[in-house]
Design a protein around this nucleic acid. Structure first.
Lengths: 239, 239
DNA sequence: TAACTTTACTTGTTATAACAAGCTAGTGAT
DNA sequence: ATCACTAGCTTGTTATAACAAGTAAAGTTA
């Protein structure tokens, strides 16, 4: 019975109380001093229990103020294509997508991107957008686009999301290859997405092809994990 | 200058050494005692610095052995259906999927699962499998199955993965609704997946329907984030 | 009243200490 | 040679202690 460490049983007790609504989202938990008395343990044990909650994303501590239950802001994205955020998809769910252009310029892409895009010339267009869902910062979108497309559609790409621009201009996208994985916030992303260093992030990485062999853009969308939920429905033919 | 906490500057020094190859992936870091001497700080500071590395996914500690640089073992899953691990999909990539039955029993499912499955009776079959890719523990699969299916196919479900059993028995799966999101390891999952408490995990949550209105199973696959990479190719019709 | 200071409360950092528990290698007995 | 055990390493848990630093409200001064 006593094989479970004290800090674990305390944090699980607190987790259950949060789940059952004893402590509402945004509400302040008891102070460390109060918990020491309530559970009859030392401060280091209380702090370990709180650290568990913070690591599990259930609470956030603020020096000088207290520990607060994480407000739930998770958003479900229902996407028509994997890894491609379309305003129309999100609007269906009542989510308003806004974005801010951080960067749009001609650059020399990293070697792996040049290989994927099959670039003979050394440069491509690079764009970085900061995406917000219902006004709350949620993701950074980084895209490399073939130089001829970037040059031609630059003004439109600055005003709208990438895929709608291509579709409106009848650039056929034959297929999209995509991967999804989990990483941790480095210093740059921690600044963009307003999360502490090391927080988990979701990376969508995608390549769009205009015909079976012709990749036209390569990009990644890096989302806050706490505001991320990706939904998909797939019909299966009977075996 | 001294405004940065000691444990931060120590963990950043270690991070740089890991990045520059002083400590190779899988290699053991110096012991806490050695670090105390090397940096001239107390054990609690060394442990805090190591905790930072672990939270950033750069290192893993093992009681009795030491702290090791995280080996890069990321595996790309290319799946024919979202959130459903099929041996055939993985075999295509040269990944051998094995599993161990942790639990198979009749239980009273939680309220949300009963609502999804439309259960009038109070019970359903519950199975929990521990999945390994190429011998390395990667995911826990938890599934609730309609009682009539669980009873009928129990012996097969203990020996094989769920979807192959259903398909071989001509249980038509009309469609699968799935979501993917990021959570953190609680005590139970931390034990199953051999990761520290609070490490990011990926949750696939899926519902399979035998006809448009008839859900037959509900489950989730909880993957280690450091061994997770989900790949999908989608063909798009021209606009 | 307005601005400043003090005070009390909060979490953050760091040290010392002791014991528990997991792992490994060597020791010794059979 | 094989097995059990012990010694010595490792990280994990928990306690006590002190000070730093951020916050907010009360009190004080101009």
């Amino acid at each position: 019975m006593a094989s479970v460490p004290l800090h674990i049983s305390i944090s699980e007790k607190l987790r259950d109380q949060i789940a059952s609504g004893v402590y509402a989202p945004g509400e302040k938990l008891p102070s460390e001093h109060q918990m020491m008395a309530a559970f009859g343990v030392s401060r280091i044990t209380v702090r370990q229990a709180i650290a568990n909650l913070v690591n599990q994303g259930l609470a956030q501590s603020k020096q000088g103020k207290g520990v607060f239950v994480t407000p739930q802001t998770k958003v479900a994205y229902s996407l028509s294509s994997p890894l491609v955020l379309l305003e129309s998809d999100l609007a269906q769910k009542g989510i308003k997508l806004t974005f801010e252009n951080i960067s749009f310029k001609k650059v020399r892409p990293p070697e792996n991107v040049r290989a994927i895009l099959g670039l003979t010339e050394p440069s491509a267009y690079f764009q970085k957008k900061l995406l917000s869902m219902n006004g709350s910062v949620g993701a950074v979108d980084i895209t490399y686009i073939l130089p001829e497309l970037g040059q031609q559609f630059g003004p439109q790409l600055k005003r709208k999301m990438t895929f709608p621009v291509l579709e409106e201009n009848a650039i056929a996208i034959e297929r999209i290859e995509a991967t999804i994985e989990c990483t941790h916030a480095d210093y740059e992303m921690s600044g963009h997405l307003e999360v502490p260093l090391g927080q988990p992030l979701i990376v969508y990485r995608y390549t769009a092809y205009s015909n079976p062999d012709k990749p036209i853009l390569q990009g990644e969308t890096i989302s806050r994990a706490d505001r991320f939920c990706y939904a998909l429905t797939v019909k299966r033919s009977a075996p």
